[in-house]
Design a binder for these strands. Structure first.
Length: 419
DNA sequence: TCTGGGGTCCTAGGACCC
DNA sequence: TCTGGGGTCCTAGGACCC
């Protein structure tokens, strides 16, 4: 059996832990740049605020209902997530961290009553961290996901549902709308609806060959999982990333090469850091940018250009240098750039890097500098030490107008208690 | 004025090899 | 007139997840 532990309205719940005045009020959390709504409290969902809705289009509805609006605070959410995963890890080491707010647990070998076990997890996470979770349990990951959906949706279940008997599973699948199934997105849901497949139960009645032909092997796996045949194993150690991307929308449209250079330098530096964190190096770097695709009156330009590195590297100095060279090749004056980014691919483990015969760079020296850089930033906070080119004016920086303090990751933001 | 930021996997089709 | 058979690798595009 697998359990899926999923935090309720995770980002909103994190905000509420440190600001209890938000409890029982409608609250939303915005995406980066205060662009879209990406988390809603139950009260906000009831008002009819949609997931992913652009903030500026929803502003009237939010105001009319006195919805509390928060900018996203990823240092806070990331840290809270880490604490939750640690707590779950104390229940079992058979743990897959599936996303910032979800984890699968393999329950093989758990001798206690599963319902009692789930209640303990729920209580412990709430006590240790203050975030409410829902727990779904089933014989496969897809069925645990299904159970979790009902655990969250139906108040009588009090956040826990175990799908352990055939009859219970069948009842759940008969009511389960096909578009809610894990792995069935908009396109497949529309396609299946056209073929009179409305529920998960309808779906598992389809012949294997038909599913395979129309939805690839991925679709067939979902079908098998829903029928109780486990095809998706627990992945305890997340595999190394095959591509790493750092990109941001700008706080306001940018036109000058100089300010975009600062942004690109900072993105390339971030990519280098992420590579070092997974002990990898990249062979290919891609710089891209685009104008505002939502504006039909503006002339559009979305260049992207790859650059093959002389040798695989994770040095910020090198990646920043080549990213800026690449940027100069694609930058054209006269456009209003809205977003830019740097991606690195063809990633290899750092201890398997092939040298380059004509390389002028002293990699040993770079490695030592990067080590020092990472140590300083770990100790004194991100961006304490950066490339000089990143500094100065930061016109491109994002909007974050309603951000809460970093209560758990920044000394000056720690809550003061007056005695 | 204002629309996020990451990722993965799969397949088809083309280029190329012998 | 008539043009094989078997592979691999790469890329773009489409689907999905949170």
């Amino acid at each position: 059996m697998f359990a899926l532990v999923d935090c309720n309205n995770f980002y909103v719940s994190c905000e509420r832990v440190f600001n209890p005045s938000l409890n029982s009020k409608p609250v939303v959390v915005l995406s980066n740049n205060d662009g879209c709504i990406i988390a809603r409290s139950n009260e906000a969902k009831q008002i009819g605020i949609k997931m992913g809705a652009p903030f500026f289009k929803t502003a009237d509805l939010l105001r009319a209902n006195q919805v509390v609006i928060c900018s996203s605070n990823y240092p806070l959410y990331g840290d809270m997530s880490g604490r939750i995963m640690n707590t779950l890890g104390q229940f079992t080491p058979q743990l897959e961290v599936y996303s910032i707010d979800e984890a699968f647990l393999d329950l093989a070998g758990i001798s206690t009553d599963l319902n009692e076990y789930a209640i303990q997890i729920h209580k412990t996470v709430l006590r240790n961290i203050g975030v409410p979770v829902s727990i779904g349990i089933g014989p496969t990951k897809a069925l645990a996901k299904t159970a979790n959906y009902y655990a969250k949706k139906i108040p009588e279940y009090k956040g826990i549902l175990i799908l352990n008997r055939q009859k219970k599973i069948e009842d759940a699948l008969r009511q389960f709308a096909i578009n809610e199934v894990w792995g069935i997105g908009r396109q497949y849901a529309d396609f299946l609806n056209k073929h009179q497949v409305k529920t998960a139960w309808d779906f598992i009645q389809l012949p294997d060959e038909w599913v395979r032909k129309n939805m690839t092997i991925t679709g067939l796996r979902i079908k098998k999982e829903l029928t109780g045949i486990s095809c998706l194993p627990l992945e305890q150690a997340p595999p190394d990333k095959k591509s790493i991307c750092t990109s941001r929308s700008f706080g306001s449209p940018q036109t000058d090469l100089e300010s975009i250079q600062k942004a690109i330098a900072s993105f390339a530096g971030q990519c280098a850091y992420k590579l070092r964190k997974q002990k990898s190096c990249a062979n290919l770097l891609i710089v891209f940018m685009h104008t505002n695709k939502f504006n039909p009156y503006e002339s559009q330009y979305s260049p992207s250009l790859p650059f093959r590195l002389p040798a695989a590297t994770n040095s910020s100095l090198e990646l920043v240098k080549y990213a800026l060279l690449t940027l100069e090749k694609i930058y054209k004056a006269g456009y209003h750039y809205q977003k830019a980014g740097v991606m690195v691919t063809e990633i290899v483990p750092q201890d398997q890097v092939q040298g380059c015969l004509f390389d002028e760079i002293d990699h040993g020296k770079h490695g030592a500098i990067m080590k020092a850089l990472d140590r300083i930033n770990a100790k004194y906070g991100p961006d304490t030490l950066t490339m000089a080119i990143q500094g100065g004016s930061t016109d491109w920086r994002q909007r974050r107008e309603r951000v809460s303090p970093s209560y758990t990751t920044c000394w000056k933001d720690i809550i003061n208690i007056q005695v």
